[in-house]
Design a protein around this nucleic acid. Structure first.
Lengths: 341, 341
DNA sequence: TTGAAAGCGCTACCAA
DNA sequence: TTGGTAGCGCTTTCAA
């Protein structure tokens, strides 16, 4: 192992005290003469000194590290989210300790580990957090923001796409364009994104007098979306429109429709949710309800900092409206008809 | 802020010394009587004690944290890589501090920050590292493993797909199936993945007497792949086969071919590189050269631990062979003809 | 403006 | 098997 250079080495070389070296490298710049500072900086450069972030954390008992807890990174929606978070966090001079929860394993089990690392705050994405755990974080003084998830009555703030409104919008779009045999392809059960999208869709349909829509269960993957569409289309009196709880499943559904020799949108219309990059690709041209990811991320970081500045502020739920992105997978929709949700 | 519970609080409550508490929570379990341990554990549970990982690092001067430096998370190949790394690292009881380098910003600039956090090791993915920086890491005793990149003559070990062999394989496949007007769609210049794939392709073509292949520059995105294919196909005497430096561009190329009314593979064959999930989707059925990601990740972690155990071991370059995945985008290839690269 | 010294919460060594 | 104690490298009073 290489000998580690510490502030003491620098102090010795610069002929100053260790405290002075520390002052020079503190973020705020208190009372150090320009000349001394220069001497210290030179000595540090000569030695290749780098302040030890761990020791600094130890001493200040504060961390710049934000924990990110994420399941499902591979779902095409989340890599983008993660990258954005990392970029924004880095710009704010914060580091990110990232954890993934495999679907089966409980997110709550990961929490002690995260907390041990004294993270300044925690962002939880695509993974549910029990309200006990949320409370525990609150007790340790670690602000938690849920991204695209929320706990009912929990102690955690959350930022979500307005999934209910999105579901309603999908219902309106499909009905307005004259579709009459609707079906919903559901995402993973017990996720708030899925239940909210379905609820919005179902409620709006009911309001407009359609109670005969069908439903197939899938779990947010391409393969299950494909299979669900297949099943739906196989029966007699197949649906003429499919609302899919996310884009990936919608893409699978689209391929399924084509595979059985039907056309999109002439024979069946498809509308997705998310607006992932692939939705715009030539082979698909998926009409979808877009989540305003950038706005959601910005809101999350706002909430985070608000909570950091004011630890006692109450939890907040922030809903970010989405919007309809019109491409080619819904019959009777013309590309000027985009609207907010 | 909540009062923080320390090992001293636990010691007091359990009626033991602070050292004993520390022993109980050390990874290795030395010399603590079952009864004492139980008392300590109970007291800790009552108090909600959690060992402070920062203090532990400070004291041991070792970290379990691995830095991951990654650009391009959104390229569909990398989220999978990242998730796998996180999973494997977590299983090994290591945390991951993740940094992204936006393409423009120098990865080297991020390094001091990473090093300040006393990471035990560093994995660099999809981003080049100058050899100076690699040396600097070596000097600080931080093992660096490059994933899918290497620095010539550098001090860092690397794990790569065997891109040269993959390029050769693509050439053979296309020639063997009777294609005669070949073209290469290049990825981002100055990335070793691109240059190696191209070199393998070009060399093999030259060996077999084809020097008339064409080339279009793109940068690994769907859009540029689409545009490059468009250009290639627009001229007179358009190519009858396209080798794309990655799958995303191949998918773009495929959509471009269809858009101008040509058919894949009847009119033009396309072969990609990576085997991302979307390559298998119904709308594409892309024939491609697969990177054995799991093997690459395993090799990376092997190298990492080898280096950790034996800091003086020399840098290693490990090439992981890929294999041909036959789907429907190359004419004249029958699905039994898969082979190693 | 600078230096001395007291921690931060833990590990690890040495004695008992 | 346990307790005492000396750090780890830094920040942060408090004095000079």
């Amino acid at each position: 192992m290489t000998k580690h250079i510490t502030s003491i080495d620098v102090a010795r070389r610069a002929g100053v005290s260790q405290s002075t070296v520390s002052r020079v490298f503190s973020d705020k710049h208190p009372a150090v003469s320009a000349e001394t500072r220069q001497r210290v900086l030179t000595a540090a450069a000569d030695l290749g000194y780098r302040p030890n972030a761990i020791a600094r954390m130890m001493s200040t008992r504060r961390t710049h590290i934000v924990g990110i807890l994420m399941a499902n990174i591979t779902s095409p929606f989340y890599p983008y989210v993660l990258e954005k978070f990392l970029q924004r966090l880095q710009a704010l001079d914060r580091q990110a300790l990232v954890f993934t929860a495999s679907a089966h394993q409980d997110v709550d089990a990961l929490l002690p580990l995260v907390l041990q690392h004294q993270v300044a705050a925690l962002i939880v994405t695509s993974a549910t957090l029990s309200s006990e755990t949320a409370d525990e974080c609150a007790r340790s003084g670690v602000p938690v923001i849920l991204f695209n998830r929320y706990v009912r009555g929990g102690a955690a703030s959350a930022v979500c796409a307005d999934n209910v409104a999105g579901g309603r919008l999908a219902a309106d779009v499909l009905l307005d364009t004259g579709h009459r045999r609707l079906a919903y392809i559901a995402g993973t059960p017990d996720t708030s994104t899925n239940t909210d999208r379905e609820r919005g869709f179902a409620d709006r349909l009911a309001e407009r007098g359609d109670t005969s829509w069908r439903r197939a269960q899938a779990d947010y993957t391409y393969e299950t979306g494909f299979a669900a569409a297949h099943d739906l289309l196989a029966g007699s009196d197949p649906p003429d429109a499919l609302f899919c709880a996310n884009d990936i499943m919608a893409l699978g559904a689209l391929d399924a429709v084509r595979q059985i020799g039907a056309r999109v949108p002439e024979d069946v219309s498809i509308i997705g949710f998310d607006d992932i990059p692939m939705a715009g690709w030539g082979a698909y041209h998926l009409t979808t309800i877009r989540q305003e990811v950038d706005a959601m991320i910005a809101a999350t970081l706002d909430l985070l900092h608000a909570k950091l500045d004011q630890p006692d502020s109450p939890p907040v739920l922030r809903l970010i409206p989405g919007s309809l992105i019109v491409r080619g997978s819904v019959r009777g929709l013309d590309r000027t008809q985009e609207s907010g949700a």
